[in-house]
């Protein structure tokens, strides 16, 4: 594994921090070096929300990402804000149900997925983040599904084990797309 610098961004309430945590735990269970840094404060409530996750074989220096290798965008402002910062050769995945414009850069790979629409169809309207995550995993191959399953047991609250299956199903759904 090289170093993956992932920015996840969207509206508060879309599960951005949760998706970031899942990635962080993927790093944990596979013994990688990692950091998880949320944007915090007023912007967490209702406005845009983002989270920086670094997964690496080497100790993480700056936990703050200025040139992401992967962008995970769940709303228009997030794509607009971070698209230009993605490192050349990087990867962008975005929720095309909520983002009309699409990726304009040609030196990065852009993948569109109508994650919110798929989530509605599955009656899991709050889990578009996991569907998009499934697609991210499939397209980048930065982690395998077994790791994701292990990590998921750590992020799903122990008191609500039923959420494990719900989340996993959405991730698997995303991996089909």
């Amino acid at each position: 594994m090289a170093t993956h610098e992932i920015i996840l961004a969207g509206f508060g309430g879309q599960g951005i921090l949760f998706a970031g945590k899942l990635l962080a735990y993927c790093g944990m269970v596979s013994d990688k070096e990692l950091s998880w840094l949320p944007s915090y404060g007023p912007e967490m409530r209702g406005g845009t929300c983002n989270c920086h996750v670094i997964l690496s074989d080497e100790p993480v220096s700056s936990p703050l990402i200025t040139k992401p290798t992967i962008l995970f965008a769940m709303n228009q402002p997030s794509l607009e804000k971070f698209e230009g910062k993605v490192a050349p050769g990087g990867f962008i995945i975005y929720d095309s149900s909520l983002i009309a414009s699409g990726v304009t850069r040609t030196d990065v790979t852009g993948v569109a997925l109508p994650a919110t629409q798929l989530a509605h169809e599955m009656n899991e309207s709050k889990l578009a983040n996991m569907i998009l995550m499934g697609s991210l995993i499939k397209h980048t191959g930065i982690i395998d599904i077994e790791t994701v399953k292990k990590a998921l047991t750590k992020v799903v609250p122990a008191k609500k084990p039923e959420l494990y299956d719900v989340n996993l199903n959405c991730i698997l759904k995303g991996m089909e797309n």
């Binding site: 790093g27 944990m28 990692l34 950091s35 998880w36 949320p38 915090y40 936990p63």
Partner: peptide, 10 residues
């Protein structure tokens, strides 16, 4: 600082 307080690491 706020960054260290808010970030997660193993």
């Amino acid at each position: 600082d706020g960054m260290l307080g808010q970030m997660m690491e193993p």
